[in-house]
């Protein structure tokens, strides 16, 4: 078997076998874009972990305040506008996603000014969303008193009737009715009520706080999402500066960076769809 080298030489046509031609892109995407996709997959799992934790803690709590009762204020001192403000926030985010799509399209056409303009619009959208969130948090913390440790939004588990200061009976309520424990001169001022159903019928009680996990989960999860929006805005800003300075014109893969940051931005919108579902709708 000494002369197998000559045998090997006889085969000049190279048989690569099944299809793989090497340095090809099996998923039709460069490694940078693939990495972004897989990073988003991991991030989606982090958010899933959070939202599943929310569901678990909600399932293990006796009561849980209704979202349409909690989120019913609107800037300008308007009350009784359930879910209207958060719908507005959702729109802001959707619009910023749309402007991002436009930026990517202009990037694909190598239109420097167009890409920069639409990136700018996206940044404005992101900042608007953050502003809305800041107002929502401020309202909840300052005006309504919901913090990481206290949740003034409770839910009655029995029927009952409120007792006024002078001892007379006030408004009736049914089991499952939401209430907010009010503050008076910075002091909690829970109202007195008489229980009208269940084993404790006839007793007089004060309004209790709602499950504190409600507030804590709200701040941690929307905070984590807000952090993503914030970092997205920062990255968008850097990319916009790069676009304006013309870095991408010279690069081999052109405006792929715009596309990648676009993926991240849409992902932030995508997560909001589920945060919106879990916190505000269900």
């Amino acid at each position: 078997m000494a002369d197998h080298s000559t045998v090997a030489e006889a085969h000049h046509e190279v048989d690569y076998g099944p299809a793989w031609k090497g340095a090809d892109k099996p998923l039709k995407a460069g490694y940078g874009k693939l990495m972004m996709w897989y990073f988003l997959l991991t991030d989606a799992f982090t958010f899933s972990g959070f939202l599943i934790s929310y569901a678990t803690l909600r399932a293990s709590s006796l009561t849980w305040p209704d979202s349409d009762f909690v989120f019913s204020t609107f800037p300008g001192g308007l009350h009784h506008m359930p879910l209207i403000f958060v719908t507005l926030m959702t729109f802001v985010l959707i619009v910023s996603s749309v402007t991002m799509v436009r930026a990517v399209q202009e990037g694909k056409r190598e239109n420097k000014n167009g890409a920069a303009f639409w990136l700018g619009m996206t940044i404005i959208g992101g900042l608007t969303f953050l502003g809305c969130q800041a107002w929502e948090w401020t309202n909840l913390i300052k005006n309504e008193g919901m913090t990481l440790f206290t949740n003034p939004f409770g839910k009655h588990t029995t029927d009952g009737v409120y007792i006024n200061e002078d001892g007379s009976e006030g408004e009736h309520f049914a089991a499952g009715a939401n209430y907010i424990v009010h503050r008076h001169h910075g002091q909690w001022a829970p109202k007195k009520y008489k229980v009208l159903s269940g084993p404790e019928k006839g007793q007089v009680k004060y309004q209790a706080f709602g499950p504190r996990e409600f507030g804590a989960l709200f701040f941690v999860i929307t905070g984590f999402h807000g952090f993503h929006v914030f970092s997205g805005v920062v990255i968008l800003f850097i990319i916009m500066l790069n676009v304006i300075s013309g870095v991408y014109v010279k690069r081999r893969n052109g405006y792929e960076m715009v596309e990648k940051v676009g993926l991240y931005w849409h992902f932030v919108d995508l997560v909001w769809v589920f945060v919106f579902l879990v916190f505000y709708l269900l």
Binding site: H79, Y162, E165, A177, H184, K191
Partner: peptide, 11 residues
């Protein structure tokens, strides 16, 4: 009297 916030109670 804290009763003035009663309108927040929802059925």
């Amino acid at each position: 009297t804290p009763a003035e916030h009663g309108e927040h109670v929802k059925k």
